[in-house]
Design a protein around this nucleic acid. Structure first.
Lengths: 226, 226
DNA sequence: GCGACGATTCGACCGGCATCGAAGCGTCCC
DNA sequence: GGGACGCTTCGATGCCGGTCGAATCGTCGC
């Protein structure tokens, strides 16, 4: 029984900025490889490896090997709850500066989430795809599926010709913090972001994972956005 | 927007054994002077003073002066929740001793959780209150509400005359680690614990946040317990 | 099999912080 | 007002651990 469990051990693990960034990135239940987590945390590969070893040792994170990659994810819902409970008492980020709040708004609109699209635009797209019957409604973290009759939007995005990808589910719901609803992830989600970038409807912002519609993109998005 | 609140700051504060011990000691909502907290944490006075200054600076603890003493207490229920969430994922202590397991059983039965009642007794009470239609069923971490027709149990506990309390929700579900179900927290939960103590149905144990029913209390609890 | 790549281990460097003794400040009691 | 007491500040010490370059191991693609 945990009448007086050693509170300090997990707290110490979460107390390092690099590890905290990793845990936050994993909060939606995704599994990410070590290299991605290193980039997210802003540290070199050896440093990230050390941190991840500690997180695994401490039981906050679990690792699964897949070829030459190792995917890390949170060890359970209790860990996610603890992370969120700490976020609840954490001082809010830059909120004070104009730049900060403008950046936040920009990210809420459209950003990349790992390798797929997130933000309000992603939610609109997911809604439209469900609406036209191209995909089943999304569950959070749950694998979903494409239907066998793709609509015009799905055709435009090339979702009917997504290359097959090993074990990764084609469609998956990924929780979006903007509105706490799932957007489209999985192989199809990744493919979709690729098409949007390749066709010049979206461009990546310079310093973060923000995405901005081009003029053509904005016009196109307006045809189905709320 | 807390898209990326600085998780690491409060976690770092909790990550030191001395500070963790202090926070745990304050978990039941008591206010303790610096000297007591120093003793509990097992450090010298200057060290404790330094730790407490950090906890106050970080917003986890608040201090009130009273003569030549300074009393410290947790800054709010959210801090208590974060501490408990971390305890939930902490490695279990060396609980092999008989004393340890007896204490654990005692705490599982009834204890204070910040300012309200937790443990099996709390779950029984919450069930009974829901059963008699005095409160809506509890969601974890979710605000709930009193119904407009309090039953006899609610009347006995004075839940119909809980003083209004600013922003704090009257009723809230708080996850109980005993059975992973929510018990009654919020202003009503705090009031209920106060009544139980004031009416001599429960007494605080000496060294921890355990609570023990008095003979009258035990008899009364038996009337609705499972 | 050979090169590319992801991940880990090793070793060295260095900053940050927990710790406590001594001293200073304010409050209470007599 | 004098002494005791609670708490804090200051300063010095020592250690833990975060960091990254270089090297190693294992896997994938051709």
């Amino acid at each position: 029984m945990d009448a007086d469990a050693d509170l300090a051990a997990p707290a110490k693990l979460m107390g390092d900025p690099a590890r905290a960034a990793m845990l936050t990135a994993l909060l939606d239940g995704r599994s990410l490889p070590a290299s991605d987590l290193a980039a997210i945390a802003g540290v070199a590969a050896p440093t990230a490896s050390s941190h991840l070893a500690q997180l695994v040792e401490g039981g906050l994170v679990v690792a699964t090997r897949s070829g030459r990659h190792r995917y890390f994810s949170l060890a359970g819902a209790e860990v996610a709850r603890a992370v969120e409970a700490l976020q609840a008492i954490a001082p809010r980020r830059p909120v004070t500066s104009y730049a900060g709040s403008r950046a936040a708004k920009r990210l809420a609109e459209a950003r990349s989430c790992y390798d797929h699209l997130a933000g309000r635009l992603a939610l609109d797209l997911a809604d439209a795809l469900v609406g036209e019957g191209s995909i089943e409604p999304l569950g959070i973290g749950q694998p979903g599926s494409l239907t066998d009759r793709p609509g015009p939007l799905a055709m435009r995005l090339g979702l009917d010709r997504v290359p097959p990808t090993g074990k990764r589910p084609a469609v998956r719901g990924c929780l979006d913090w903007t509105e706490r609803r799932p957007h489209l992830a999985g192989a199809v989600g990744a493919h979709m972001l690729g098409v949007l970038l390749a066709d010049g409807l979206l461009v990546r912002d310079r310093d973060d994972r923000g995405l901005t519609p081009t003029p053509e993109g904005a016009a196109w998005f307006a045809t189905f956005a709320r």
